[in-house]
Amino acid sequence: MSRLTATVGARVQSIVYGEPTPEEIDAELRLTTRIDLAHLVMLGDRKLIDAADAAALVGLIERLRAARFRPLHDAPTPRGLYLAYEQLLSAELGASTGGRLHTGRSRNDLKATATALRLRAELTQLVSELSRFQAVLLARARVHRDVIMPVHTHFQAAMPVTYGYYLAGVAHALGRDIAALRRCGDELDRCPMGASAVAGTDLPIDPTRTARLL
């Protein structure tokens, strides 16, 4: 069995990879390049990349970030956005320098890390909003602590409580959800960088350094 050497057609490309908007391109590559910059620092610390190559890569990446990745807005992406970005680096800096960025890693751990960073940011925002909502519920519970209302069971009024008591109960239940989301956040703090394609690399990388930078 031989490897696929031809790219898929335009219609299949649009189905598999979609047609990202400039905003989506910026969002995806901003996360990717954040990881790239941390990875380059680690490679430099470990003497796995020449200082001149690292400086050239950092400079180009920073220029692309400042331009919101406009050079990639109309670039062909037959194998996805990341490979188009990778090809741009090599086209601008030469394959020898552009390819250095991939030292000691795979697109597998890169993608997993980008996904974790995106989810962590979204989770942090969600927890923040839910915490504010919980604070509102508790504030309203105090205001309505003397307002009588019935609670129901089997579609019948069962006993009297206060509206404040009811709102405090909702806030308490919401607190359990917030705690569960925070536990998810703890798991998302585990950085996949260093796993490479499957089982790491024999290069003397420092995944802990990369994780701390992220």
Rank of each mutant, 00 (worst) to 15 (best):
I61L: 11
D186N: 07
A84Y: 00
P204S: 06
P22L: 07
P76Y: 01
V136M: 07
G59D: 10
A158V: 07
A180S: 09
R183H: 11
A56E: 13
L188N: 10
D53F: 13
N108R: 02
P71V: 03
Y85M: 03
Q13S: 12
D177T: 10
A54F: 00
D45W: 02
V198G: 01
G175P: 09
M42W: 03
L93Q: 11
A168H: 14
Y166H: 15
A10V: 15
L130A: 13
T103Q: 10
E92L: 05
D109C: 03
Q87G: 09
R176T: 08
S90W: 06
D146E: 15
P160G: 03
V127K: 04
L40Q: 12
G200E: 03
I15A: 15
R30E: 08
S90I: 12
H154Y: 12
L167H: 09
G104L: 08
A66W: 02
A67T: 00
G164R: 06
L203F: 11
P192G: 09
I15Q: 14
T201N: 10
A51D: 09
Y165S: 13
D74I: 05
P71G: 05
I15H: 14
V8L: 14
Q134A: 10
A195W: 01
K111G: 03
K47R: 10
R107L: 06
K111P: 00
G200P: 03
Q87D: 13
E62I: 00
G169M: 04
H154S: 12
Q125K: 15
P150Y: 08
I49L: 13
T208Y: 01
A6P: 03
V161S: 04
L117M: 15
R140D: 12
I178K: 02
T5G: 06
A56T: 04
G80W: 11
L81R: 09
T103H: 07
D202V: 14
G104W: 08
T162V: 09
G175I: 11
P76Q: 02
I25T: 11
S14E: 15
Q156P: 03
L174H: 01
A38E: 07
A168D: 14
S196V: 14
Q134M: 06
